[in-house]
Amino acid sequence: MKKVISLVLVMCLIALFALTGCSSKNAETPKENSQQPSKEESKVEFPTKPITVIVSYAAGGGTDTGARILMPYVEKELGVEMVIANKPGGGGWVGWTELLNAKPDGYTIGYINSPNIFSGYLNPAYKRDATIEDFALIANHVVDYGAIAVRADDKRFETIDDLIEYAKNHEVTTTSTGVGSDDHIASLKLNDKLGTKFVAVHGKGAAYGKSGVLGGHIDAYFANVGEVTVPAKNGEVRVLAVMAPERSKFLPDVPTLEEKGYGKVYSWSARGLAAPKGVPEDRLNIIIDAFEKAINNSEQVEKMNKMGLDVKFMKGEEYYKFLKDDEAGIIGVKDLLGW
């Protein structure tokens, strides 16, 4: 069945390419019959036209892929098309600014990624006045907790205790995907609580950090569970600890920092959905209900797990509190960040 569908798609594409190729030369007059859907009906009917989902990162990235997996399930619930619009740039804030400026009619929603969204306005250099309070939260989709790993043949650090003891007296370089990234903030939290001397080597993109650790140039791999599970299975890295309230189901043998006695040091990167403030309550509720069903759909969960990502549905107060905790964590290390 799958094959038939994709074959039809393939054929259509070829026809399209052929058509576009010809039309550029011959320019036949097309008969445009783009009939607009009938105008807005009574307000209870929602949604009646496609909903735009702003993804603040480039197509093909982690957020984008996750969104493209989830949206078909949301479409099934809402009965309209969910159109993904990639608006990358500004560490996500290009898309988020656009989301905030969109008409609050429920037809424009977007992914919000924490902690990126916080570092974008907590850092005074950016001079932004928008905060998390300006968004109407819909639901959380994915939580990817932080993990600390080292190269598999690194004899110096067999356990997390080795690493932390060593780091108390020596500078240990760590990977980071930028100032204010969850990896960076995790290393700062450890420095703050345990007196370690982790020094982040910021690099563009996740590839730099991973190749730096595998090549032995950088000591510790501060990443997320989703990023270390496969390399750990391949025997390339040894995961020492996860920074979560409980062990990860993907890495059941790896202890949490908390159970090792290093206190409640949590770190995560999470992504969920939000709309601009001002969306009518009944519409927002329709969207939230649809996402609740879609995110909890077992088929969807399985697909996300296959990518090493943990699905965690949260809404309302719970989601808000979760995000505020994250924000508070960053405010706590503001001095270390020099903000």
Partner: peptide, 20 residues
């Protein structure tokens, strides 16, 4: 754009788009 090592936005003139 944003200086990756300090997180400071250089010569962006207040435009988010230029941060990258």
């Amino acid at each position: 754009g944003v200086d990756i090592l300090t997180g400071y936005p250089r010569y962006t003139f207040g435009l988010s788009v230029l941060e990258s």
